[in-house]
Simulated scan of single mutants.
Amino acid sequence: MSLLADPASLVALVLSLAVAGALIGFLAGLFGIGGGAISVPVFYELFLLLGHAPQVAMPTAVGTSLAVIIPTSISSARGHYKRGTVDVGLLRQWAVPVILGVVIGAVVATFAEPAVFQLAFVVVASINAAKLLLGGAGWRLRDSLPGRIALKGFGMVVGFVSTLMGIGGGAISTMFMTLHNVPIHRAVSTSAGVGVLIALPATLGYMAAGWGKPDLLPDAIGYVSLGTFLLTIPTSLLTTRAGVTLAHALSRRRLETAFGLFLALVSLRFLFALGG
C-alpha cells in the first residue's frame, strides 16, 4: 500500500486509469466491444503494485473489468441503436442463452484454467483477423446466420467464454456474425448490445464468487474494486460517443481492416500472457 502514500505515484495511478478508461470507451463505441483486452491487464498490474497476491489480483481484475463494461456497453449500444444498425431480434434470441452461459462461466471460473479459453480465442481471432485484413469475401461459414437452435447455442458459448476471459463478448460475437456474412457495421452495433447482456450478470457473479474471501482489496465487493471502477468510468463514457461516430464514418473496408488489426493485437496480448 506504499504506492498510495506517495502523491506522485497516486497521481500516476489515477492518470493511468483515466487513460485506460478513455481507450475502453473508444473501443466500445468503435468495435462494439467491452474493452476487457485493455482493462484486465491494466487492472491486474495495478492490483499487483498495490501488494495483492496474483490469486486475488486476477479475478478482481476480471470482475472489475466486467463492471466497467456495463455502462460503456450501454452507452455504445444506445449510440448504435440511434443509427438503426442494432439487430434487436438477434439480441432477443441471444438474451437467455447468453445469460445462461454467463452463469455457467462464473461457476467454472472458480476452478478452471483460463489459458485454455484464451488459446481457443487466439486461434479463432487470428483466422478472422486474416479474413478481415485480406478482404477475403470467400472466408465465410455461411451466407446467412444459422437457425434458431444454433444461434442459441452460440449465444451460450459467447456468455460462457466471455465470463472466463473478462471481456464483453463483442469481439467473439462480431467474429461470429462477420463469418456469417453480416455487414461489419451491423455486427459491431449488435455486439455492443451483447456486452450489456453479458456484463451485468457476470459482474454479479464475480461479486458473489469473491464474497467473504480473505485478502480482498479494501474497496472491493467480492472480486469487484469499486474505487477502480469509479476512476475508470468517467473517461470511458466521454469517449464512447466518439468511437460510435468514427465507426459509422468509416467505410465497410476500413472498419473491417481496423477490426482485423484489433483482433490481431488482442491475440498477441493473449499469446504473450500464455507465454508468461
Score class of each variant (00 low, 15 high):
residue 4 L to D: 05
residue 6 D to V: 06
residue 13 L to I: 06
residue 19 V to E: 02
residue 22 A to L: 09
residue 27 L to K: 06
residue 28 A to V: 11
residue 29 G to R: 08
residue 30 L to M: 00
residue 34 G to S: 11
residue 38 I to G: 05
residue 44 Y to P: 12
residue 46 L to Q: 09
residue 51 G to W: 06
residue 55 Q to T: 14
residue 56 V to R: 13
residue 59 P to A: 05
residue 60 T to Y: 09
residue 61 A to T: 08
residue 62 V to R: 10
residue 64 T to A: 07
residue 69 I to W: 08
residue 71 P to F: 03
residue 75 S to H: 06
residue 77 A to W: 14
residue 79 G to K: 05
residue 80 H to L: 10
residue 83 R to K: 15
residue 84 G to L: 14
residue 85 T to L: 10
residue 85 T to S: 14
residue 86 V to H: 13
residue 88 V to Q: 13
residue 93 Q to E: 14
residue 104 I to N: 01
residue 106 A to R: 00
residue 106 A to T: 09
residue 107 V to H: 07
residue 112 A to P: 00
residue 115 A to E: 08
residue 117 F to Y: 15
residue 117 F to H: 04
residue 118 Q to T: 04
residue 118 Q to F: 15
residue 119 L to W: 12
residue 119 L to R: 09
residue 119 L to I: 13
residue 120 A to C: 09
residue 123 V to N: 01
residue 126 S to F: 15
residue 126 S to N: 08
residue 136 G to Y: 02
residue 136 G to M: 13
residue 138 G to P: 00
residue 139 W to R: 10
residue 139 W to F: 13
residue 139 W to M: 11
residue 145 L to R: 05
residue 145 L to Y: 01
residue 146 P to V: 04
residue 146 P to C: 03
residue 153 G to M: 01
residue 157 V to M: 02
residue 159 G to H: 03
residue 159 G to T: 05
residue 168 G to S: 14
residue 170 G to I: 12
residue 173 S to A: 14
residue 175 M to P: 04
residue 176 F to A: 07
residue 176 F to H: 12
residue 177 M to L: 13
residue 179 L to W: 05
residue 179 L to Q: 06
residue 181 N to Q: 11
residue 182 V to G: 00
residue 185 H to N: 01
residue 186 R to G: 00
residue 188 V to I: 14
residue 188 V to K: 14
residue 190 T to V: 05
residue 191 S to M: 15
residue 191 S to T: 10
residue 195 G to H: 09
residue 199 A to I: 09
residue 206 Y to R: 03
residue 208 A to P: 01
residue 208 A to M: 07
residue 209 A to R: 03
residue 209 A to M: 02
residue 209 A to C: 03
residue 211 W to N: 12
residue 213 K to C: 07
residue 219 D to C: 04
residue 219 D to G: 11
residue 223 Y to T: 02
residue 223 Y to R: 06
residue 225 S to M: 10
residue 230 L to I: 06
residue 231 L to E: 08
residue 232 T to A: 08
residue 233 I to H: 05
residue 234 P to K: 09
residue 238 L to I: 12
residue 240 T to C: 09
residue 240 T to K: 13
residue 241 R to F: 00
residue 244 V to F: 04
residue 245 T to E: 11
residue 248 H to W: 05
residue 249 A to Q: 15
residue 251 S to I: 12
residue 251 S to K: 11
residue 254 R to D: 13
residue 258 A to M: 04
residue 260 G to P: 07
residue 267 S to I: 08
residue 271 L to V: 01
